[in-house]
Design a protein around this nucleic acid. Structure first.
Lengths: 253, 253
DNA sequence: ATGGTGGTTATCACTATTTGATATTGCCGA
DNA sequence: TCGGCAATATCAAATAGTGATAACCACCAT
């Protein structure tokens, strides 16, 4: 296989992780042959890895269909993550406060390479499933959260990100022009917030405020999703921006 | 090492998983020597496993302190889990509805061996951190959710669980008498719900309703935590029980 | 500065463990 | 009932992981 010139690299472990990562939102239960197809590993390797993961409690298995599925242990790992990230404990009470006061869905997004990842979500309205559960990754440039975080960085970094980082066309209206995005980030820097519409989902307005660290840079953002049918952008700003900024500023990244 | 008589068992992968599981709520960032101590693995093995996990993006590392930490990938795994479990998608909208209507914290708990695990949490009040984040595991017998799920099983299973399953004394008032617990489960069967007080946390009232499958058995429960200072048990039942039962019944396990 | 200590990184010969090809079994649909 | 696909089981070959040891490094106390 693709040997890494790295004597400390345990390829068997890496192969096991490949199995775990084969599961995602459109691959929720996989057979051995599915796993072979998705990972490109040898049939025997897949057999041994999946078996070991099952014995170790990382995969459940339906005895009827023989399909493997993620186990509850995957949630336990998230639990350990939550304790390990000090930002979570600082942000959660503020988000709860905001959620109660405003009655709208609030999220905490963090930057993770060139993507953002939602690490806390307090859904308040019925919305689509992906928008209600933690761990979702989206290209940073496509999102209000990602843009507002970028806006706290240097011009060089913004330029580099706008030219290199990935973009996905999620809706017919998703902004795909990289210089438009760069301009939008620059104005977010002036404003101290970022608002988008129809970017990941039609008729969704997304408003994000940066959670700044002591150096002024943001590694996280507080973000809300508002129905673009019930409100227009101006109304969203009037109604939610002040307390959103308060909430984000109160977290101290 | 402790050889398992299992030719399909990949011990290197298992060792890697041991590293992941070394992180928990009181071990949020670990050095190599910490990992050696917590896992009992050889120093070299720990070195190689941690290095591999780092290269593969499963562990972050502080370059200054050299400490390893869970990475965002742990949340991505939770995301995959959520998609894989069909109960989550059915329960979430109902929980959101309840949360909005009642303004109180609601959780979805699932049975996982002899423990329960919280798989959805919609916090509405500021409370302690562990009660607000998903993935927490608690001994089933100690919790209202666990007891109400058990109450849908046969007498044999209840008897077996009550005599064998683990108990932890979380507060001074945690019920530790196994026959008292058995009686409590039996009455939960009559009532169709289960209420506890001061069990995991002092001044916390916990009320749980079963999410029944087609066979009548519950593998999940909807549960709320209410301040025992603001309410007494009677008030909690009057105020929340009807809609909690509705919510749970509407999920169709 | 200096030396000592604890922890991290690097090296390597040995062999236990994984590999991958193949054989066998079991299951489901035609 | 049979045919075909997928899941299990087996095994000799050799690679990949082991674990002991050594070098290195950063920090602290002297």
């Amino acid at each position: 296989m693709e040997r890494k010139r790295d004597s400390l690299y345990a390829s068997t472990l890496a192969r096991g992780l490949q199995i775990l990562r084969a599961f995602d939102e459109s691959h929720v239960a996989l057979s051995l042959t599915d796993l072979v197809a998705r990972t490109g590993l040898e049939k025997s390797a897949v057999q041994r890895m999946a078996h070991t993961l099952h014995v170790e409690g990382m995969l459940d298995r339906d005895p009827k269909s023989r399909l493997y599925r993620p186990s509850h242990a995957w949630l336990e790992l998230a639990y350990a993550y939550y304790w390990s990230d000090p930002l979570i404990a600082r942000a959660l009470p503020k988000l709860i406060e905001f959620s109660r006061a405003m009655g709208e869905t609030v999220n905490l997004a963090q930057i993770s390479g060139d993507h953002i990842i939602y690490s806390l979500r307090l859904p308040n309205q019925r919305t689509h499933f992906a928008a209600s559960i933690v761990g979702r990754r989206l290209p940073a440039l496509n999102t209000a959260s990602g843009r507002v975080m970028l806006s706290t960085r240097s011009d060089e970094e913004i330029g580099h990100a706008c030219s290199r980082w990935p973009l996905v066309q999620a809706t017919r209206k998703t902004l795909m022009d990289r210089s438009d995005i760069a301009r939008h980030i620059k104005s977010a820097r002036e404003d101290g917030f970022c608002i988008t519409r129809d970017q990941m989902l039609l008729n969704e307005i997304s408003l994000a405020a940066p959670v700044r660290g002591t150096d002024g840079q943001a590694h996280a953002a507080v973000q809300i999703s508002i129905s673009g049918i019930a409100f227009n952008e101006k109304q969203v700003l009037e109604r939610f921006l002040p307390s959103l900024l308060d909430t984000a500023a109160g977290i101290l990244g």
